[in-house]
Design a protein around this nucleic acid. Structure first.
Lengths: 133, 133
DNA sequence: AGTATTCCGACGGGACTAGTCGGGTAAGGA
DNA sequence: TCCTTACCCGACTAGTCCCGTCGGAATACT
């Protein structure tokens, strides 16, 4: 039932970028300082975001990062799933990663977990950076 | 966003006990075999459940465990919170365990997490063993 | 007495988390 | 051309947590 700092920091970084859409290419150092997260660590996360094409980067002087899409087109779900894996509270309930467990035989219990997953997923899916900017 | 096997197994055990309410005092071995979970491990979990007064125990021959309350009075929330800690997706959003983080300054984001926590908590709070038995 | 069963604390291996570090690569400016 | 800025990449580490296992003590029934 927990979120790692990875997705938390990633979200903070994206929010920062969403706020500076005009400035194009904000360096990691600026984001890190503004949001109070470790520079070197954030670098890693932004790299992941870049590979997933959520942000674009520019090297060298005046380089940095910017959003690859408008904030309204980036959902929290996408970010969290990317950094933390499945959204489901238990492995055997995810539609993205499947693996059998002993809980599976308890259909009613599983059902409850499915409903929760759907609730959470729906909420995260429809909340975008534009909403939390 | 994940549940540990601890609470999963604990729930399975409780469900088993709920199904055998008349038999009073089911030994751990029986539960473990029925639900397919490691005997020695489950023992630990039941001990926790006992200390929290969710179950009662009886030592010696014909001993074992039984529910301390009717199934309808035991919510999933209670069990999961006991074994896994807070239900909130991020630490700074739980009403039970509080600790400050850098995410706190992002009010809108925090708000979303709070809503999710409330959603999940409400669901788990009102679902009881009687529902999943 | 003997046997079944809970109770308790300790321990261990593996995975994961949260970072750090050193250096490589590209872009811009002087 | 050369220097500086900044991204890029992989390796590494220290700590924590998870999933169990184990040995044995205490207790209750037969």
């Amino acid at each position: 039932m927990k979120l790692t700092t990875r997705s938390e920091y990633a979200l903070l970084a994206l929010i920062h970028l969403a706020r500076h859409e005009g400035d194009e290419y904000v360096p990691v150092a600026a984001i890190a300082e503004a949001q109070g997260v470790p520079h070197r660590f954030l670098e890693q996360l932004l790299l992941v975001l870049k590979r997933a094409r959520l942000v674009k980067s520019q090297k060298g002087q005046r380089g940095g990062y910017r959003l690859a899409r408008p904030p309204a087109k980036i959902s929290l779900a996408e970010v969290i799933r990317l950094l933390d894996g499945a959204l489901a509270p238990t492995e055997s309930v995810s539609t993205y990663f499947y693996e059998p467990t002993p809980v599976e035989r308890e259909r009613r219990l599983l059902r409850v977990f499915q409903e929760i997953r759907d609730l959470v997923a729906a909420k995260l899916e429809k909340t975008t950076l534009a909403d939390v900017r």
